[in-house]
């Protein structure tokens, strides 16, 4: 009993360290962006995109390529956005569109397949130069620490938090102030009625997918700074965790899904930063154990009110 109490108190002490807190918020910010990207598409298509991480991975490969070609950083970032957005739109056209209206289970398994396919393609590309993984070295300088009030904060953590805040604010503006934003919200609530009123399905879906692609590219830049060695499984772990977070928060609302993404990122940052090494290797177990417990208590989502998800797998 005392052992447990000491361990808990050690954990809590470590967890309140500003250092740990800042890092956890940084991870939460990136996960929140991924959650929005997944949630936007779910809103209009009722499709959980398992392949979201592979979009991020494609962006990371673009950055590594640019770095390898000694392109300036900004040009690499442009390439990253072009590649990710193109791939996202292609995915919508080739996979999502024919799947429209199919059962949720079919869509989930299909994007699962696409995820593996893209990962395998990336592996093939990766191996053409006989190395495993490509370094995106030119971005690494963003990973250096700043000391603010005695706390070492990596530049990228600040960038991530600020970027996430800006992206989320921008998204809120788009959703609440623009016509296409209104159409997207309406489509997420009741697609059929929205169409009966003249809201164009293709345009609404296209916009949601485009926004989710932009977010994936943004995430790709920030993750690549933190993990400059780009392999075919890049962002895979993150996606699995974010998916759990999104379902945990509540898929039905973009807001709750985003909070869910943030919460699971924050929790994993906290656990990773504050647990002693011997235990931190069991971080996934603790995290997913928590996920199961929370899903049992609140199957409809942690941050939602009312009944659970509408879809049925």
């Amino acid at each position: 009993m005392t052992v447990l109490a000491t361990a808990l108190s050690d954990f809590l002490h470590a967890a309140v360290e500003p250092q740990v807190q800042v890092d956890a918020i940084g991870i939460g910010a990136i996960y929140a962006l991924m959650a929005v990207g997944i949630g936007l598409v779910f809103g209009v298509l009722r499709l959980v995109n398992f392949a979201y991480g592979q979009l991020v991975m494609a962006g990371a490969f673009a950055l590594a390529y640019a770095s390898d070609q000694d392109w300036p950083v900004w040009l690499g970032i442009v390439l990253c956005f072009v590649v990710v957005i193109t791939l996202t739109l292609a995915m919508e056209r080739v996979v999502f569109r024919p799947l429209r209206g199919k059962p949720a289970a079919t869509m989930l398994v299909a994007t699962f397949a696409v995820a593996f396919l893209l990962q395998a393609v990336a592996l093939l590309i990766d191996q053409t130069d006989d190395t495993l993984g490509e370094p995106a070295a030119s971005l690494a300088k963003l990973n250096v620490p700043w000391t603010i009030l005695g706390t070492d904060v990596r530049k990228i953590t600040v960038v991530a938090i600020v970027t996430a805040a800006v992206c989320l604010a921008g998204l809120v503006l788009i959703l609440s102030r623009t016509t296409v934003g209104l159409h997207m919200r309406a489509a997420a609530m009741d697609f059929e009625t929205a169409r009966l009123l003249g809201v164009r399905a293709d345009r609404v879906i296209g916009s949601a997918v485009l926004l989710s692609g932009i977010l994936a590219a943004t995430v790709a830049v920030m993750l690549t700074v933190q993990q400059p060695l780009v392999t075919s499984t890049f962002a895979l772990r993150e996606t699995i965790v974010v998916l759990a977070g999104v379902v945990l928060g509540g898929m039905n609302r973009l807001f709750s899904a985003t909070l869910g993404g943030f919460a699971i990122g924050y929790a994993s940052g906290l656990l990773g930063g504050a647990l002693p090494t011997a235990q931190s290797q069991y971080l996934p177990s603790i995290l997913f154990g928590l996920v199961i417990v929370i899903l049992l208590v609140r199957p409809g989502g942690l941050f939602t009110r009312g009944p659970g998800p509408v879809e049925r797998v």
Partner: peptide
């Protein structure tokens, strides 16, 4: 061709004004 659907199908979570703006989509 505009429809007033069975059961009204108002977007209850949106404001009245937003519901009207949605109607503009058919113009």
């Amino acid at each position: 061709i505009a429809l007033v659907p069975e059961g009204r199908r108002i977007f209850g979570e949106l404001t009245v004004d937003e519901n009207l703006r949605l109607g503009l989509a058919g113009r």
